[in-house]
Design a protein around this nucleic acid. Structure first.
Lengths: 251, 251
DNA sequence: TGACCGCCTTGATGTGCATCAAGTTAGCAG
DNA sequence: CTGCTAACTTGATGCACATCAAGGCGGTCA
């Protein structure tokens, strides 16, 4: 078996050659992404159904509410936001998706995407055609189990957000989001205490059911309390314990 | 093939004889419940894994947050509420479950129930052991698909609630819940305009992120506007169009 | 370099719902 | 029936966050 190495001039014959060699087997996210819990033979099969197209640019849509549902997607790099548009034109951000996370599962129930997804920055995406995933799931119990678990996690996370929106103050909501992002960074072996927010204050507010002004004020307050250092989108968590107690979530 | 008819005296040998003859094939909910989209042979197989135990009394728990996850459940009669307890002891109701609906799917991700479920009134339940369901799903593509869809629907419904909590006024929230209950009644061929609320004002408020007092005031206001007739738990929708416009959801 | 624009911050004011408080009604046991 | 309790309603007051308004900062394009 020979391995084809990228060369000058390939671009003309192979679009997207810059990362054609990426696959689930060598992807550094495979410990947290869909291949989790699969044997290497199985990973190979999963890999065969996955499509990798050219990266999404900032603000490009991966799919839009109402689009025919065909695939779920894994984030390989970058960040996306999912959102619904209410009939009176307002937006509700329903989630942020970081590398290694799966989105699009809300489209399964009606064969149409229930929300839109757009890139907050340049993002590389793995597309997983759902019919292939179903076929494979029937053959690979571990994959079926894992996908059930992924959907179940989406449910529990939504329920967390419901509780947050319904019971927690502005301070608590923002603190909880910072902790969530911190934890997801840690899962990807990135710093849990220093990171750059990929989303705007508007998006944060929208996600947390707050206005921009309130989000901004909360950040200022946390900075004054020396819990966070905030420099525009750069965040440093100075006092993780303090932040956790502010979030008031316990778990 | 002989059909065994219930007789006096069976009780001694068969506990729970009062409804031992219920099965998915003859259940009047099979058009909206899990068996939906299955052939009758397949329904038989599904039926074989389903366990029907004696009904839950009002306020009894079906499962509690943290319990080991083994099964998902279908409601055959009665109503349940699912709720989480925050670490500071408060409750967050995450959903109400009516006949034909499935609950417990949030336990799949961690092999432990992420919420508690208790009966709001006497309720008959079908228990579906998850390992059996997985096994069967691998053999029956339609079942696998349908279960994926059910989980996906749970996700989209949670997202609806998120939007409701984050963007809508007290009036809109209550109106949306009334419409939701009305629609779910219609699905079960019951009246869409007259029904009895199985849950208390406290539960409604808790679910919608409001206090009891606010819920009560909204009901009074709607009654004054002749949109609803409210007599304690008895509800009559007098002006469905008005209620829809109050809910301000469009879809 | 300056002018524009999107994004963020900060302050002043307003309001929808929570909170507090005091009945009223329904269900139930005796 | 009488008394008890849980559930609900209604009113008065307060507050967290929205809204309105103005200004600062950073990036980009001519």
């Amino acid at each position: 078996m020979t391995i084809h190495i990228a060369q000058q001039g390939d671009a003309a014959v192979k679009p997207c050659n810059h990362d054609y060699q990426v696959n689930c087997g060598n992807c550094r996210l495979n410990g947290i992404c869909l291949p989790l819990a699969l044997e290497s033979d199985d990973i190979q099969q999963l890999d065969d159904i996955i499509q990798r197209s050219k990266p999404l640019q900032k603000n490009q849509h991966l799919y839009r509410e109402g689009d025919h549902f065909q695939s779920v997607f894994a984030v390989r790099s970058g960040t996306l936001k999912a959102y619904k548009t209410t009939d009176d034109g307002r937006e509700q951000v329903t989630g942020f998706y970081f590398p290694g996370e799966i989105l699009g599962m809300d489209g399964i129930s009606n064969n149409a995407h229930a929300s839109s997804a757009k890139a907050l920055e340049t993002a590389a995406i793995c597309e997983i055609p759902f019919v292939s995933l179903e076929r494979l799931s029937a053959l690979m119990p571990n994959l079926q189990r894992h996908f059930f678990q992924l959907m179940s996690r989406e449910i529990t996370e939504d329920q967390q957000l419901i509780t947050l929106l319904s019971k927690n103050s502005a301070d608590e909501r923002v603190a909880a989001l910072m902790l969530s992002i911190s934890g997801r960074n840690a899962r990807r072996k990135l710093s849990a205490t220093q990171f750059r927010l990929p989303m705007s204050r508007v998006d944060i507010g929208n996600y947390l059911g707050l206005t921009v002004e309130t989000v901004s004020r909360v950040f200022s307050r946390m900075q004054k309390m020396a819990v966070l250092r905030v420099d525009n989108k750069e965040i440093e968590i100075l006092d993780p314990a303090g932040l956790r107690s502010m979030a008031n979530l316990g778990s």
